[in-house]
């Protein structure tokens, strides 16, 4: 083959490649900029998305979004018993905070559950309806009440107001998976396999 280095062909080829590369880099930078624009959401929204949305008020706030707002103003992230460790981990990752364990003052870790009204004992006082933060209880004065199971967050705010104690909290347990991953090889980090 001919010695091409130093000829005008070689130089123009190199120039062409350089121009293409620069154009590509500019394009990628623009893409990145556009993406970062679309990612701007308020920190309260981001925190709120990580909370379990049970609206149980165990954190001392009226609901999850108020707590999210409080966190954004500097409150501790370990006050959410329904979320448990997973929520604390996610929040600590988002906010780059220390991963404290759950604050026992706010209760223990809660499992998936649902409340059920023993309907023949209900006297129709509507107290639970007023207590429910997500309007998941149906009923009227002097009429039987019932819980819409799919909407119940198991916040158990309705249990205490009930004058006849006819509301039960039923644990649902872990959902069963059909396919389980093999036990072997649950490591990801390089070197953590020792």
């Amino acid at each position: 083959m001919l010695p091409l280095v130093g000829t005008i062909y070689f130089q123009s080829l190199m120039a062409l490649i350089a121009v293409l590369l620069i154009m590509r880099v500019i394009y990628l930078m623009r893409q990145f900029w556009l993406q970062s624009l679309s990612r701007q959401h308020s920190i309260v929204d981001q925190i709120n998305a990580l909370l379990p949305q049970t609206q149980c008020g165990r954190c001392g706030h009226l609901g999850c979004r108020p707590y999210a707002k409080a966190i954004s103003l500097g409150e501790r992230i370990n006050k959410c018993p329904p979320g448990g460790d997973e929520t604390i981990t996610n929040l600590s990752l988002l906010l780059n905070e220390h991963r404290h364990s759950l604050d026992p003052a706010h209760g223990e870790v809660l499992q998936r559950a649902v409340v059920v009204i023993r309907e023949d004992e209900c006297i129709g006082c509507t107290k639970c309806i007023q207590a429910c933060p997500v309007d998941a209880i149906l009923g009227g004065p002097k009429l039987m009440h019932t819980v819409i199971e799919s909407e119940c967050t198991a916040c158990d705010l309705c249990i205490e107001p009930c004058p006849v104690d006819c509301i039960d909290l039923i644990q649902l347990g872990e959902p069963e998976l059909l396919w389980r991953a093999p036990e072997a090889g649950k490591t990801t980090l390089i070197g953590s396999n020792l």
Partner: peptide, 21 residues
């Protein structure tokens, strides 16, 4: 869900939320 930058999907009726706040 686990990607933090894209969490904005969970914005429930922004106008209402603002009004409450």
């Amino acid at each position: 869900k686990k990607t933090l930058p894209l969490l904005g999907k969970l914005r429930v009726e922004k106008s209402k939320a603002e009004e409450i706040e």
